[in-house]
Simulated assay, not measured.
Amino acid sequence: MSTEPRRWQTEADRLANASLEKGDPTGWFEQLYAAGESGAVTMAWDHSEPHSLLADWTNAGAVDGTGKRAVVVGCGLGAGAEHVAGLGFATTGFDLSPTAIRTAKSRNPESSVDFRVADLFELPDDWRRSFDLVVEIYTVQALPRDLREQTVGAVVDLVAPGGALLAIQGVRAPDDDGSGPPWPLTRDEIELFSGSGLRRVALEKLRDAQGFTDWRAEFTRG
């Protein structure tokens, strides 16, 4: 008799807490994706469509990436990166998890996206300030708050002169007890993206297609 795999959210909490106890705040991502690949749990962040707030933003702005470069941070299984590539950008999608990147490639065998295994804190030097569009969705909130400034700074450093950053993060609720994952952001924390020469263009608090309340913030490097 077959049994349904456990929901990945519960396993994420267990793995994250165990990883944090070992002083390794990022080790649980690969463990979670590997558990999904094996069928032990449902696959984490398993979406065939881009985040609704990303799609709405690109549609409303008629974003055209022809002749430009884009990067999707923590791209997971690749839906967001595929959407961005479809706008004409030469797109890189990277994730810390080899399983996530392997799955993204297998699901999109004809993709133009350059899917890479990479650590946000140890990125190639030639990526620094090299992308005309940087998309960051939920990666910052997936890491503990004591890494917030470091994580935001690493994302910001990808934005090229004249480039844009779109950041989508959960809104921290007033009754948030600080336990995670995730660790949603306050207004002050989303404003951290304004550092290192970036200027805020727009900041909205919106309900996404799944019913969650998120920050959607756009920044540019002058």
Rank of each mutant, 00 (worst) to 15 (best):
H83E: 13
L96M: 13
L77F: 04
S97K: 01
S111I: 06
T92H: 07
G76W: 07
S130D: 14
S111P: 09
K68N: 07
G76C: 12
L133Y: 03
K105I: 13
E110G: 15
I101N: 03
G67R: 10
L120G: 02
R69P: 00
E110L: 13
V84H: 02
D132T: 05
W127R: 03
P124H: 09
D125M: 07
P124K: 09
V72W: 03
L96R: 12
A85V: 00
A118H: 10
F131A: 01
D126L: 11
W127D: 02
D119K: 07
G93T: 05
D119R: 08
L120Q: 06
R102T: 15
V134S: 08
S112H: 13
A79K: 03
R116T: 07
F115W: 14
L133F: 14
L123H: 04
D95Q: 11
R107E: 11
E122N: 14
V71R: 02
L133P: 02
R116E: 12
L77Q: 14
L96V: 13
G76I: 10
G78T: 04
F131Q: 01
V72Y: 01
E122Y: 00
S112F: 00
S97Y: 01
F89H: 01
A104H: 06
R116V: 12
S112K: 15
F94T: 02
L96W: 12
F121G: 12
D95K: 10
F131Y: 08
T99Y: 07
H83Y: 13
P109M: 10
R128E: 14
R129E: 15
S130F: 05
T91L: 08
V134I: 12
S97Q: 04
G67H: 11
A85E: 12
W127F: 13
S112T: 15
D114N: 14
